[in-house]
Design a binder for these strands. Structure first.
Lengths: 144, 144
DNA sequence: TATCATTTTGAGACAGCTTATCAATTTCAA
DNA sequence: TTGAAATTGATAAGCTGTCTCAAAATGATA
């Protein structure tokens, strides 16, 4: 029954504590559901959780996912008219190649790019927590 | 009076010709305004053009910017709840270092990263038109 | 240049996604 | 246990962007 996501739970509690926020049943519930995903929309999570908790409100899902973003557990990404919430803890960070022709998304990782990002950050006195890299263009099929 | 953006104008005419579309006063007007920007939202362009053309409708701006996307002159990018239209002919991408402590934004460019992005794209059969790279973290002051 | 089928426009209605509102409930420090 | 403060759920409201449609503009053709 106990969650396997102890580290993330601690991170959330830490954030809550630092901001005079409270740990609620809904927040625990949504966190556990969220951590099982790689990325998900609020709407999708709403329907998914409705099976076990029919009275969990959509607004609460949105609020909570945005809270996770503040806490550094999630990252919002806007796609067309929808927002997807990425699970930051999911196997490192993956970047995205996005085809503007067919909306196909290809995920990739590139250590060399990550290393150079780190370098840029250090040069500017920054410590990176997360990043977002999206390459927009046309995939081989959409190029005609 | 004549536009300096001859090449883009030709590209638009070419697209129009191939799709049984017509060249209108509004399309010329919006193209010239658009090409002066690096990126802009439909709303911003609406207000900008309202000064000289009070009766240019917002729907027309949206339709025309989407047309530019189809013609390969523009590229839509979703940013928060808004859509920004990038001027594809504008080269200088600047990427961003964003401090989550004080919201300070530092712009940077890194040719090596750009080169690696290109490499990743090619490996996946993509042709990049634009990209977006944002590094989130803490600046030297906010690190405590 | 006049004709006219076709496309485009402008204005507002409409739709989808997200946030704001607010009374009722829950949390948690004392 | 108590009570101030935060949170929730339901729904209204807000924001972007698209659709509708009558009127106007375009451009191929004569």
């Amino acid at each position: 029954m106990a969650s396997k996501h102890v580290k993330e739970m601690e991170a959330l509690k830490d954030h809550l504590g630092k901001h005079q926020l409270k740990l609620t049943r809904q927040r625990e519930l949504i966190l556990n559901a969220f951590l099982r995903q790689e990325h998900i929309t609020a709407e999708a999570m709403y329907h998914q959780l409705a099976k076990s908790d029919p009275h969990l409100g959509l607004a609460t899902i949105y609020r909570t996912l945005n809270l996770f973003c503040d806490a550094g557990l999630a990252q919002a990404r806007h796609f067309g008219s929808q927002t997807k919430y990425d699970n930051v803890s999911h196997k490192g960070h993956h970047d995205h190649l996005i085809c503007t022709g067919c909306d196909q998304i290809v995920e990739f990782e590139n250590e060399e790019i990550e290393r150079l990002q780190e370098e840029v950050a250090i040069r500017n006195g920054f410590i990176i927590k997360t990043h977002r890299l999206e390459l927009y263009g046309l995939c081989s099929r959409c190029r005609h």
